[in-house]
Design a protein around this nucleic acid. Sequence first.
DNA 1: GTCTATATTGAGATAGAC
DNA 2: GTCTATCTCAATATAGAC
Lengths: 210, 210
Amino acid sequence: MTTDPLTSDAEFVSARRSEIVGIAAELFAAKGYANTTVREIADAAGILSGSLYHHFDSKESMVEALLRDFLERIDARYRSVIANADDPVDALRELVHAAFGALATDRAAVAVMLNEYNLLVQYPRFAFLQDSVEESERLWVEVLETGMREGALRDDVPAAAVYRFLRDAIWVSVRWYRPDGPQRPDDVAEEYLTVLLSGLATPTTTGRTR
Amino acid sequence: MTTDPLTSDAEFVSARRSEIVGIAAELFAAKGYANTTVREIADAAGILSGSLYHHFDSKESMVEALLRDFLERIDARYRSVIANADDPVDALRELVHAAFGALATDRAAVAVMLNEYNLLVQYPRFAFLQDSVEESERLWVEVLETGMREGALRDDVPAAAVYRFLRDAIWVSVRWYRPDGPQRPDDVAEEYLTVLLSGLATPTTTGRTR
DNA sequence: GTCTATATTGAGATAGAC
DNA sequence: GTCTATCTCAATATAGAC
């Protein structure tokens, strides 16, 4: 028994392996998965490319480890937020905060998910990506539909359409959001929620707003 | 003089070349630029890979031709829309319609721009991408700021922040919008404008909306 | 304008010593 | 767990015939 006694054998992943996943994630996020070579990953980790294959059997395994871990955690976070919310509008607010929060805690994973989803999801090995995306959609849409049914949210735009606009605007912001800048993720979330919930038009705006 | 008499020598591009750019664009959009081989492009065009180099000196030249053409046209469209608008809210509405319209007319170019911008913009050859993106931002932000100054749009969220949310939600929709589906681009634009201008909350919504 | 044939490079991955 | 050395393959691009 050489593993940490607090960790079961089955779940044990070496610290070195996790470290390398993190290093690879940064490169995948910055340069794209296809444009990152295993030699670059090895360089960044301070070892030679052949040595990477002691930890992973392929480059695909690295990105798979990264995304499985991230998607598992964000799903758990969404469920926790929904379970603890007072009402649908509160749940929506907290979901938006949770999603923007991931820009700070899991920036690289979010970027990889955004940029490589379409490529990876084509392979059977990455079918879990689609499962996870569909499960998230189910959770968010359920919140939106409950809010619409209760009259707290407008119901003249389909919940699925609202969800798509929301999701896209939030995740793509990983391309411009700077974690070291003046804005905290919660600040960006509040700015977004202001426009989303109250709208951009003022009461005095003339002309159609619908 | 073998060129079309209606086209100046300087602007002449062979029909075959344009055709190949279109074929390459579909592949770049579907599989990603890095994952598309010149052999696949040649196959799709019905020729052998070596023959492609009669029309282009490199794979980069193909994507450059695609994006230069698209960005030039979308910029012209934005300027025309702004010049003909009655007021800033009208201009904003028409800009949103123009952008969603490009999903139908230039789907592949939009997808390539969205997916490959970060990669390509690193190379001096593609500096025009950043120029074009910055010019678009200038045009849109100017419209938003005018609307805020005139009191037609809320001014408690910075125009640049609103623009980023707008831009992201619109362009990323190329990932789920189906031109052959029931929704026309103008329908999607109206759905988006409804939420954007009037907000998701109903007047009866309790709790903070700001 | 396209084909045949090939040069050249760089990628992911492997085997076995240390 | 890392290094040395190398295999194998696929990619972009080129040269010249037709």
